[in-house]
Simulated assay, not measured.
Amino acid sequence: MGWAWQDPAVRAVARLIPGDVLWYVRTPEPVFALTFDDGPHPATTPGLLPVLARHGARATFFLIGSRVAAHPELVAAIAAAGHEIGNHLMRDEPSVRLSDARFRSDLAETNALLAPYGEVRWFRPGSGWFTPRMLRAAGEMGLRAVLGTVAAAHRGEPSDAQIASRIGATVRPGSIVVLHEGTEPRRGVVETVDQLLSALAGRGLAAVTVSDLAR
């Protein structure tokens, strides 16, 4: 199975890390935020949207600028389905390795590409690492960083079939779930989402956007 974070440990660590970063939300409501990184992509995004619709789920898609430029019709479909869009910078690379100037430029360029599709309030740094300078730069653009408490990435391997059960067991109210689309080997994310949402609905948990959870 791809790498994974699990909720209880991440909540504990998050309380020790400084910075204005949203990891989870304390809430008595039976909701969690469902998020997707690295799209859009023809191999994954068109399959995710009907699954989300069938479950009545809403999600936040953290999109890569170069893929937004390549597939604007998929971004339009995400927005038309009532989902939220977030900034995942221009390329699929660790944001923490970028110079300050390059980070600011990539963040602003991605924001400009996303602007026609709705308000952008959130960003997620590539590979999940961040620095205070990145948070300051994003804040100047009106963006807040979002990570999460439960995460996994598909690798196109048989063990991917275990992802839904492995992460689903740790989701609880206020969790932020991070899944990955955006490449051909990640096609299995569609089935994982179907399984995950069915299992969590059985526990009374509903998927919402990051903004809805943060409210």
Score class of each variant (00 low, 15 high):
43 A>E: 15
47 G>R: 03
44 T>W: 03
61 F>D: 12
37 D>P: 03
56 G>P: 11
75 V>R: 10
92 D>Y: 08
62 F>N: 07
54 R>Q: 14
48 L>N: 09
99 S>H: 10
86 G>T: 02
65 G>W: 14
95 S>H: 06
65 G>A: 08
59 A>N: 01
36 F>D: 13
69 A>H: 12
77 A>Q: 15
62 F>E: 14
98 L>N: 10
99 S>N: 11
62 F>T: 12
44 T>C: 08
79 A>S: 14
42 P>N: 12
36 F>H: 07
47 G>H: 03
65 G>E: 05
38 D>F: 00
89 L>Y: 04
66 S>W: 07
39 G>I: 02
60 T>V: 01
84 E>T: 10
71 H>I: 01
58 R>N: 06
75 V>L: 13
88 H>W: 00
43 A>L: 13
49 L>E: 08
68 V>R: 01
98 L>T: 06
43 A>F: 11
70 A>S: 14
83 H>S: 06
71 H>P: 05
64 I>E: 14
82 G>K: 06
85 I>T: 15
42 P>M: 07
38 D>W: 01
37 D>F: 00
88 H>G: 10
37 D>E: 05
69 A>M: 07
45 T>E: 00
96 V>W: 14
56 G>L: 14
55 H>Y: 10
85 I>L: 15
52 L>Y: 02
37 D>L: 05
38 D>A: 03
43 A>M: 11
83 H>A: 02
48 L>R: 11
68 V>Y: 11
61 F>R: 06
96 V>Q: 14
84 E>R: 12
75 V>Y: 09
81 A>F: 02
67 R>I: 06
90 M>T: 11
42 P>V: 03
78 I>H: 07
98 L>W: 09
41 H>T: 10
87 N>W: 00
45 T>I: 10
44 T>H: 05
73 E>C: 08
53 A>I: 04
90 M>L: 15
83 H>G: 04
71 H>E: 04
98 L>D: 12
65 G>R: 09
50 P>I: 13
94 P>K: 03
69 A>R: 15
43 A>I: 07
48 L>E: 10
48 L>T: 11
87 N>C: 01
88 H>K: 07
93 E>T: 13
92 D>G: 04
42 P>E: 03
58 R>Y: 05
88 H>D: 12
54 R>S: 11
90 M>V: 08
80 A>H: 07
49 L>V: 10
45 T>Q: 03
42 P>I: 09
47 G>Q: 08
46 P>F: 00
83 H>I: 08
40 P>G: 00
41 H>I: 13
39 G>K: 05
78 I>W: 11
80 A>K: 07
82 G>C: 00
91 R>T: 15
76 A>V: 08
84 E>F: 09
90 M>P: 07
47 G>E: 01
63 L>Q: 09
50 P>K: 08
49 L>D: 09
98 L>A: 14
49 L>H: 13
95 S>G: 14
51 V>P: 03
92 D>P: 02
40 P>H: 02
90 M>E: 13
77 A>H: 06
62 F>W: 12
83 H>R: 04
62 F>Y: 15
92 D>Q: 12
79 A>F: 10
55 H>M: 07
80 A>F: 04
93 E>A: 15
60 T>N: 00
